[in-house]
Design a protein around this nucleic acid. Structure first.
Length: 221
DNA sequence: ATCCGGATCGCCT
DNA sequence: GGCGATCCGGATG
């Protein structure tokens, strides 16, 4: 465990952190793989003028910083990656393929350029809102089983990038912790560089994880 | 100024 | 499983 991790585990903020409480910045200012693992089971919640929608995180990926060839931080600090290099516990929301948004929680000390991508959630609240935003989803699991889909369903957009995640419009709360026996890891999805690094975390057996091309090398933790 | 490829999705076969 | 939609950042000339 890293020094930062120990600092979090021993902190009064950690002891105060209970189910339903937003994570403070100290939670995120740690090893990115650890944060990706621990965000399984957390609740991602988005507030808009239409109301509140939320879901339980069942799939995450770690993007480690400039030394990770698949991480946007390899480009350095640019207009696009500005918020990736922001303080821990803030949002990095970027547009992909010209059409969709992807949501990340920034990790590590400010300026590193590391983050956790949320790839899938299990819908919890605001199902009517999500169905209205994604009218083509035939089943409820199709509302949020992909990083672009969940942003559309929850209402997460680029103007929320840079915002602290302990208060609206986007809030990440501690949920029911997922025990190690229910956690799996695999390589990350949809990337070409560092494609074999096992930096994707999933809740075993969840119906709500994103579709995987073929069968992955999946390991227990 | 131009080109290329991408942390995706939905529809097609 | 393959492909088109659609756009921007970064690289190249």
């Amino acid at each position: 465990m890293t020094g930062n991790a120990a600092r979090w585990e021993n902190s009064s903020a950690a002891r105060r952190s209970r189910r339903g409480r937003p994570y403070p910045p100290a939670f995120y200012e740690r090893d990115t793989e650890l944060v990706a693992r621990e965000l399984l089971g957390a609740v991602l919640e988005c507030h808009t003028g239409d109301g509140v929608a939320s879901g339980r995180i069942v799939e995450t990926e770690a993007y480690l910083g400039p030394h990770d060839p698949a991480c946007h931080a390899v480009a350095g600090v640019t207009e696009r990656t500005r918020h990736l290099h922001g303080p821990p516990g803030t949002a990095y929301v970027y547009r992909i393929y010209g059409m969709y948004w992807c949501f990340n929680a920034v990790t590590q000390p400010e300026g590193i350029g590391a983050a956790v991508l949320v790839r899938a959630v299990e819908p919890l609240a605001g199902l009517d809102l999500m169905r209205a935003r994604r009218p083509r989803a035939m089943r409820d699991r199709d509302l949020t089983n992909g990083p672009g889909k969940l942003c559309t369903a929850l209402g997460i957009t680029g103007d929320m990038s840079g915002a602290l995640l302990d208060s609206p419009p986007v809030v990440l709360r501690r949920g029911d912790d997922v025990p190690d026996v229910d956690v799996r890891r695999s390589p990350r999805i949809g990337i070409t560089r560092a494609a074999d690094w096992p930096l994707r975390w999933l809740v075993a057996g969840s119906e709500y994880v994103s579709k995987t091309p073929g069968q992955f090398r999946v390991q227990t933790v």
